[in-house]
Amino acid sequence: MVVLPVRFERSPRLHPMLSEDTFPVGTRVVVQGKRGPEVATVRGEPGQAKNNERYGAVLRAATPDDLTRWDDLHRTGEDLKWLLRARARERGLAVKLVAVEFTLDESLVTVSYSADERIELSGLVGEVRAHTTARVNFAAIGPREQAQMIGALGACGRENCSSTHLQDFAPVSIRMARDQQLPLNPEKLSGPCGRLLCCLQFEHTQYQDLLRDLPRKNAKVCHTGTGACGKVTKLHPLAGTVDVYSDQGMLLNVPAGELRRASDTEGKGGTGAGKGGADASS
């Protein structure tokens, strides 16, 4: 038995599945997952199973009949999704129907939805049962999962990371934006989902390393070359420089290595600059 990483259609996440056979990358296979049999695509080379992991199973390579049935179920799910959206509007329900997905044997239909508050969906359950004999499961998803399933363009002009390559949603904080010296503008820091951009975490550790070599914002410093002293007003981690508003009313851009704490310059003749570390932007 080997483990094959497979990907389902609405998510970039790779799911490890046990398989008796190996399949080339790109092969569409029928797998037995948590919901039941579904069609997925092999997206990696085979690996070894781990004793403490739980896996689904690759049942077989998808046949032409499997793929035809899967496409038919996909179209049925799309039609049912638009019908449910219309019925939800008629009932005045504040809900967004994101996806309707069948298992390959049509034993289960999963309706993914997003809502800001708890709502009663029993009326919509009846609408689904009027069009299929499958067991109905309504699954609430968050804003990030919604953007992942639907897809959208990010501020960079490319498709959002959550629907192309992200495997997990790591926590993102406003501190990451501060450490990267970004303007705290919610419109610029939010993704299509309305939450903080996932990409803020990508380079955060590098920025933390760079900030350790810079003085803290608002620190009193002196330039070792000119002797000019002032207050740090802005940090430029990538350039390794800081902006200093001098006591003479001038704005200077100075390499961090040429600065010393004002107290050290006055008392000890210039030893130590006072590193900012992760607190450089606080």
Score class of each variant (00 low, 15 high):
179 D>E: 06
2 V>R: 10
141 I>G: 02
282 S>P: 03
203 E>M: 00
118 R>Y: 09
257 G>W: 09
16 P>R: 02
57 A>V: 15
4 L>V: 08
120 E>G: 08
249 G>R: 07
66 D>G: 10
109 V>Y: 03
279 D>K: 14
25 V>I: 12
161 C>V: 05
2 V>W: 07
166 L>N: 00
20 E>Y: 12
244 V>E: 00
222 C>G: 08
58 V>P: 04
191 G>S: 03
187 E>W: 00
236 H>T: 08
239 A>S: 06
24 P>S: 07
134 A>L: 06
47 G>L: 11
196 L>F: 03
135 R>N: 14
178 R>Q: 15
207 Y>W: 03
211 L>P: 10
106 E>M: 10
91 R>Q: 12
44 G>T: 02
220 K>M: 10
43 R>A: 13
49 A>S: 05
259 L>G: 06
139 A>M: 10
70 W>D: 15
183 P>G: 00
24 P>C: 03
147 A>N: 02
228 A>D: 11
25 V>K: 11
4 L>K: 10
132 T>Q: 09
192 P>K: 02
166 L>V: 01
175 R>L: 03
148 Q>R: 11
68 T>N: 07
87 R>E: 13
235 L>W: 04
161 C>Y: 00
47 G>W: 09
112 S>G: 02
214 L>F: 04
242 V>K: 05
97 L>M: 11
125 V>Q: 13
225 G>E: 12
239 A>C: 03
81 K>D: 07
198 C>K: 00
122 S>I: 14
149 M>H: 03
196 L>C: 03
68 T>H: 09
216 R>D: 04
118 R>I: 09
51 N>P: 15
249 G>M: 12
15 H>F: 15
159 E>N: 04
70 W>N: 15
169 F>C: 01
111 V>W: 00
142 G>D: 05
65 D>G: 14
258 E>A: 12
264 D>E: 15
19 S>W: 11
223 H>P: 05
144 R>K: 02
180 Q>R: 03
63 T>I: 08
188 K>P: 01
162 S>L: 04
200 L>M: 00
234 K>H: 14
157 G>C: 00
17 M>N: 01
48 Q>W: 04
200 L>R: 01
205 T>Q: 14
53 E>Q: 13
228 A>V: 06
3 V>T: 13
84 L>K: 07
92 G>Y: 12
11 S>K: 06
99 A>Y: 06
55 Y>R: 09
249 G>S: 13
258 E>N: 12
144 R>E: 03
25 V>S: 05
34 K>R: 14
142 G>I: 01
65 D>P: 10
